[in-house]
Nucleic acid binder design. Sequence first.
DNA 1: GTGAAAGCGCTAACAC
DNA 2: GTGTTAGCGCTTTCAC
Lengths: 340, 340
Amino acid sequence: MSNAYNRPDQLSPELRRRVLETARRLGYPGPDPVARSLRTRKAGAVGLLLTENLSYAFRDPAAVGFLEGLALACEDAGQGLLLVPASPEREDVAAVHRAGVDGFVVYSVPDDDPHLAAVLERPVPTVVCDQPELETVDRVGIDDRSAITGLARHLIELGHHRIGVVCMRLGRDRNDDFVTLERQRSAHFHVQRTRLAALADAFAGVGVDWATVPVVERFDHTTASGESAAAQVLDRDPEITALICTSDILALGALTEAGRRGLRVPQDLTVTGFDGIPEADRAGLTTVRQPVLEKGRAAGRLLLDNAEHGRPRKVTLDTELIAGRTSGAPRAAAQIWYGP
Amino acid sequence: MSNAYNRPDQLSPELRRRVLETARRLGYPGPDPVARSLRTRKAGAVGLLLTENLSYAFRDPAAVGFLEGLALACEDAGQGLLLVPASPEREDVAAVHRAGVDGFVVYSVPDDDPHLAAVLERPVPTVVCDQPELETVDRVGIDDRSAITGLARHLIELGHHRIGVVCMRLGRDRNDDFVTLERQRSAHFHVQRTRLAALADAFAGVGVDWATVPVVERFDHTTASGESAAAQVLDRDPEITALICTSDILALGALTEAGRRGLRVPQDLTVTGFDGIPEADRAGLTTVRQPVLEKGRAAGRLLLDNAEHGRPRKVTLDTELIAGRTSGAPRAAAQIWYGP
DNA sequence: GTGAAAGCGCTAACAC
DNA sequence: GTGTTAGCGCTTTCAC
């Protein structure tokens, strides 16, 4: 009987037909997938763990691009994709324990995330995308340091040295405010930490004291956050000539706030983002493009490529600096620093 | 031991701690979720079946909105969301059989979809969103007939009577071409069929012979499809004053094609869409807005509301006509029909 | 508070 | 080509 469902080639088509028909007549709904999974030790699905609320994943274009790539990889392999309901607020790790999956993809979570810890305890393969960087686990990501350093060089060449920064959440606690150097250094989100450190290094190279640079953090990743954060930076130091945002979403909000203040971009204020989402492209935003779809696909492939591997594999994808219409030379400062 | 994991209150914290620690030391990775599911008869997840490739779902803003709403509902209930890898090309129904879920949400599939049939055979609750309309199954959707009739009236009031139509796929077979009346009538996608029929009725009311109206179909739901379909209609009948598209994505493509031909919108050509996605809003598209997020949420709630119900429940959400900047009076025809 | 045992529904292995 | 059986790992029940 099992054969009729699972091994059509092992018996005659006629018999198979008869068995199946009889089964149906008896009201047999087909093999129970859960029981089958228990027996075969295969769930036929990949679990996805996200930093954010499940629903958020569909609101951030970069996350959607990642999901698309991951879905592509799963589809190719005939695997399902299980979105694990692990909200950052709820510390409830049970959802991770209950997930019937053959492996996990973890997308951009803090290094102290309890859900991540729960995932790593499960005896299934895991691939991390972006963060955290774990020695023992496969990882797909970009070179954040070199990517943002390229952006910093672009701004430095334009003549900016009085800058402000808007970044995404640095820890699991909410801090919608300025960020101390200590908090920057100890951020639990490796990506943000690296970007800030690389910016500090780059601007230190042209004599900027990083301690004087206003850095503002936002917990929620929305354009509204970008607006209010930009306002906070500009209120603190109206003299800044460039506002570096660590995501396009934040940068788009910053553009809105600049417009509200009558600041022309880029004449009065340069604004930059990170990610290269379609909306940023339409807005002509200066940003760093990263291959979000490729990241998802690579993560999925890594997980599903069951090739036994000794040491954990690391995939680093390329990024590209997009010099858009939102960056230009600062009005006055350029004269002082790179005068004729 | 089971109690230590599942019923923390049934034993002393001290004992619980000891048990758990011993378990860990022995390398016990925690209860197997699949075995637990088999025993408890609960998978803790909802399956989602889509018309399209899994990855496509992330490219259509309307689908993304639906997913967001569904994810929201699942999250609230602590349920996972399993994306079932059922591509329309592959007739492989196995993925449906293998899905370890407590119920299915089916999003906009043709009435003869084999995956749908497989879902309905499984002994779990199911909710259909949009299509098909099944007597015995819960459904969330809109009133397509009245929605598109409102749009038709808008165009008729403006004075349009020479129109063309671009619609989405009408069956599982690819037909990137004009659509016969017979094909319109027998379309396996209830939503498209209803919209076309309602348009036919509305325009028949002002003396338009529907058989003379060029209707073009596209299998792929992309702006590129909208472009080429608009071109096909305009090549056939350059005299049309309005192009009705059954989705915003198609309409946005049509706008591109109109621009390419030097047709001013709406002076030379009126273009309308359907859905009310953000991009349409930005483009000022005349369209019908439907609450995509609400649809997803309603579908999820319906499925997870385990209230025993006798007859299948039907949820019909409201739509809104958005009169944008892409619809206006036709140049010449308006003089003839509604002249001063 | 603890231990033993039945059984969820299936598949794989083996004997016929 | 067919029938039987063990056991996947868990939870629940019941006896202690």
